[in-house]
Write a protein that binds this DNA or RNA. Structure first.
Length: 422
RNA sequence: GGAGAGGUGGCAGAGCGGCUGAAUGCACUGGUCUUGAAAACCAGCAAGGAUUAAUAGUCCUUCGUGGGUUCAAAUCCCACCCUCUCCGCCA
């Protein structure tokens, strides 16, 4: 949610900024709505005040043994007016809510302007696309050939966009997640958490998935949502909380499955396990002082990159343009890993600074002795990394001509020294 | 799933129709005392919102959530949610 103050006092500039993100705000209609809001809010509060004052005088009159009948009639009349004003105000508030809850965050000034992924800008590149002296296969061919990967079985069990992993590849995925978690907790200062995979509506709203993206999430019969990312439970751990300034920054990580309907991507990435309804991810979340969020984004992105460097897999990092960023983000870096099977870079991590956008929805604040009131924190989240896609990246980059896969050096201890999977 | 108890400020905990945004204690902040600290004593200390140039003042809201009764609700009624204890079931 945006700061209501800027929507009142700086509507023109805000509308322009929103436009860079593909959100068209009808300024005239907004101003009209805002005018009404102000009128009815003031009216309602005044009537409320009148009633309270009069009601109290009834108590006093009664104590003195005076006749209270005329006073009671008067208060009753105020009550009727109040109910009317209240109803009107609530109606307006609902409209305001409807607009503000669907407005994306504002982009930071250094985010490149653009319409879609075509306008994203590469900021750095690590390594060169892996060279092979044979024609590299993609993860599907490698997986099916070795009995590691089976989408027919998954379809039988569940439907499309699911995969069954078997044998050493199933273990490789587990090991990758563990390696990531170990790295973030022992080297990067994150605290590991185990969190619920089903959350309530308030939690999904706090981090921005609802109400706008209801169609992307799986909902259970008792109104719980399957988490689309661990960002949701991790960030909301601090919903409705005032954090002491000395406890910032909070750095959390978790390994969870993620569930997504992929409603908007029919026919896209249907081959293999690039885009699934269920996938594993290690997530990083930071809650920081507003002054520190820019630096925290750089640090977090470096932590995600660090995993790929340790695995020795080539990647590049891009900064998303205004039009391609997610709803709650003010600035986002995507890390794209090289996939020989596709002969292109594919997203494996997305690290975002959400500034105070989620904090305002969640009411997450920090207390500074120098400030009179608690202030909103900034929140950040980033994949560190998408485990399923990382599995693909290892398979494709570490493949041998005979279809076996070499184990990256840093993972070998997890396999008891094993160097090749077959 | 069944029975019972309960949800009040950062925490603990009173209040059970108007004088209660809420006693008291702890924690926290400032001060007195002290070489310094502790103790003691004094003072302060909820959040959100509207208005406003204002972090000045004024006003509104909030005692789990949502409804209801009433001139007036933390306090009475109803529904729901959550927590705890016991029983049942179960990895």
């Amino acid at each position: 949610m945006l700061d209501p103050q800027i929507l009142r006092n700086d509507i023109e500039a805000t509308a322009q900024k929103l436009a860079t993100r593909g959100y068209q705000l009808d300024v005239e209609a907004w101003n009209e709505l805002e005018k009404n809001r102000k009128h009815y809010q003031i009216l309602q509060e005044q009537l409320q005040n009148h009633r309270t004052v009069k009601s109290k005088s009834i108590g006093q009159a009664k104590a003195k043994g005076e006749d209270i009948a005329p006073l009671m009639d008067e208060v009753k009349a105020i009550g009727v007016q109040l109910d009317e004003a209240k109803a009107k105000f609530e109606e307006i508030q609902k409209e305001v809510q409807k607009l503000t809850m669907y407005m994306p965050n504002l982009a930071m000034d250094d985010v490149p302007l653009g319409k879609d992924e075509e306008d994203n800008v590469e900021v750095r590149k690590w390594g060169e696309p892996t060279a092979f002296d044979f024609e590299p296969k993609d993860h599907v061919d490698l997986g099916v050939k070795n009995g590691w990967l089976n989408s027919e079985s998954a379809a039988k069990l569940s439907g499309s966009r699911f995969t069954v992993l078997s044998g050493t590849i199933a273990k490789l995925q587990r090991v990758l997640a563990q390696f990531m978690l170990d790295t973030h907790t022992s080297q990067n200062g994150y605290t590991e958490h185990y969190v619920p995979f089903l959350v309530n509506e308030a939690t999904m709203t706090g981090s921005g998935q609802l109400p706008k993206f209801a169609d992307d999430a799986f909902i259970t019969t008792d109104e719980k949502y399957l988490i689309p990312t661990a960002e949701v439970p991790l960030t909301n751990l601090y919903a409705n909380t005032i954090i002491a300034k000395r406890d910032l920054p909070v750095k959390m990580t978790a390994h969870t499955p993620c569930f997504r309907k992929e409603a908007g991507s029919y026919g896209k990435d249907t081959r293999g396990m690039i885009r699934q309804h269920q996938f594993e991810k290690v997530e990083m979340v930071q809650i920081v002082h507003p002054q520190d969020s820019n630096q925290a984004l750089e640090d977090m992105t470096a932590c995600a990159e660090g995993i790929l460097k340790a695995l020795e897999i080539p990647f590049r990092t891009i900064v998303l343009c205004t039009g391609d960023m997610g709803f709650g983000a003010a600035k986002t870096y995507d890390i794209e890993v090289w996939l020989p099977g596709e002969d292109q870079y594919r997203e494996i991590s997305s690290c975002s600074n959400c500034t105070d956008f989620q904090a305002r929805r969640m009411k997450t604040r920090y207390r500074d002795e120098n400030e009179k009131k608690p202030q909103l924190v900034h929140t950040l989240n980033g994949s560190g990394l998408a485990v399923g896609r990382c599995l693909i990246a290892v398979m494709e980059n570490y493949q041998n001509q005979d279809g076996t896969i070499r184990v990256p050096k840093v993972l070998q201890p997890y396999f008891g020294g094993l160097e090749v999977l077959n």
